[in-house]
């Protein structure tokens, strides 16, 4: 069976004037349709670099990344990025922010407008359509950021620690929101995080990377996604065992 995303023996070497650094060494992994994958690993191991490689923003030194069999460099707008900070453009309204992607690719179709309008309504942001980001709460801002990422209908979502900058209360709400939106929109997602609790509660598979140069150390699978509420997932024995096993791999 062909996977949606295939990362085959990918390495990346950074060149500086004084040295060259092997950041990623022969990583191979895959992602299937509607799968939620988390990538965890020690700080500075190259998790974010891996996402940049998957998005096609940087090119690997060797190896191959394909999305539906197509080289990632040719798969324009098939991946959507979400960061630790929402990076909403303060000078644009909520509507203008989520229209950024379609604007860039020149998509003015009524279908897209309808699709975005639908997303705003579905996720409780319709009343804030013409407000500026300064009028939104932290949770709402992240929801807008996710809808902006979904606007181009990407096949793969890349989530770079999207909950890292949120306070405890907001984080709980946003994690549930993001989980629900991704499940309902049936998006394949790769989450990079240093929080193994987030990884264990959200994912179908958890990939543990080693220290730099990072290689895939271990892959864990989980069935917790069948439980709708994140907080309920956290109360299960499987969750606790998963956390313990991931932790053992990290230390």
């Amino acid at each position: 069976m062909e996977h949606l995303l295939n990362i085959d023996n990918v390495s990346l070497i950074y060149h500086t004037l004084t040295d060259e650094t092997l950041a990623i060494e022969s990583i191979s992994m895959y992602a299937d349709e509607n799968e939620f994958i988390s990538v965890v690993g020690p700080s500075g191991c190259g998790k974010t670099t891996l996402l940049s490689l998957i998005s096609g923003v940087i090119t690997p030194s060797s190896g191959k990344i394909t999305l539906r069999g197509q080289p990632i460099s040719e798969a324009k707008n098939k991946t959507g990025y979400m960061f630790q900070r929402d990076h909403l453009f303060e000078w644009r309204t909520v509507w203008q922010n989520i229209k950024l992607g379609p604007e860039i690719v020149g998509d003015k179709s009524p279908e897209t407008t309808k699709y975005l309008d639908g997303l705003l309504s579905k996720y409780g942001l319709q009343d804030f359509k013409h407000k500026y980001p300064k009028h939104l709460s932290g949770g709402m801002r992240q929801r807008v950021a996710l809808i902006r990422t979904l606007a181009l209908r990407p096949e793969l979502l890349l989530l770079d620690e999207p909950f890292g900058a949120l306070d405890y209360q907001t984080k709980k709400v946003v994690i549930q929101d993001v989980n629900d939106i991704i499940s309902r929109e049936q998006k394949t997602s790769i989450l990079v995080t240093h929080d193994i609790g987030e990884a264990a509660s959200l994912s179908d598979r958890i990939i543990v990377l080693s220290h730099r140069p990072s290689v895939v150390k271990k892959v864990f699978t989980s069935k917790l996604r069948s439980i709708p509420l994140i907080e309920e997932r956290k109360k299960t024995r499987e969750y606790q065992e998963l956390i313990d096993e991931i932790w053992k791999e990290l230390i």
Binding site: S55, V57, K76, Y81, R85, W91, I104
Partner: peptide, 28 residues
């Protein structure tokens, strides 16, 4: 912010679009 530029690049923006939609308005 580099992440904002990365965000626009991931949406397929070219350099002129990054200038027009991000760099100039952000520098007002």
């Amino acid at each position: 912010e580099q992440d904002k530029i990365l965000l626009m690049k991931s949406m397929g923006a070219n350099k002129f679009q990054i200038l027009l939609k991000l760099i100039l308005p952000a520098s007002v």
